[in-house]
Amino acid sequence: MVIILLEGTEDTPKVILDPENNIFEISGRSLPEDAVLFYQPLIDWLDELEKTPIDNMNFSFKLEYFNTASSKIILDILIKLQEIYEAGTSITVKWYNLENDEDMEEAGEEYSDLVDVPIELVKY
């Protein structure tokens, strides 16, 4: 599979989808007005990955800000990961938040309540 590497911008996150090195990370700011436009290729990529899953997948979200449009599509990504997980691949999802960022921590807890793939909340 191709490796996806996107540099972060003022309104879109840094993205690493690298099965070879088992690094899957979305970090920084996610404020695109059209979240589908930005995230659809990543969702499509995860669809492909579902066919050839990798073991002990590590997926991290380390976001500073995200808008409501992104919030919806992050849930779609987690649901996709849940499907991969339920098909028998072990996955560790880490949701990072800054020590004093309670809103981001709460967002992680809310996602954790909504999906069955285990989400570990990590402070940094």
Partner: peptide
Amino acid sequence: KETRLNSTFSEVGGAGMGLID
């Protein structure tokens, strides 16, 4: 949580997620 779960993308914003947030 309900709005996020039940809205489609075309409705995001229109469904008021921004206001709730």
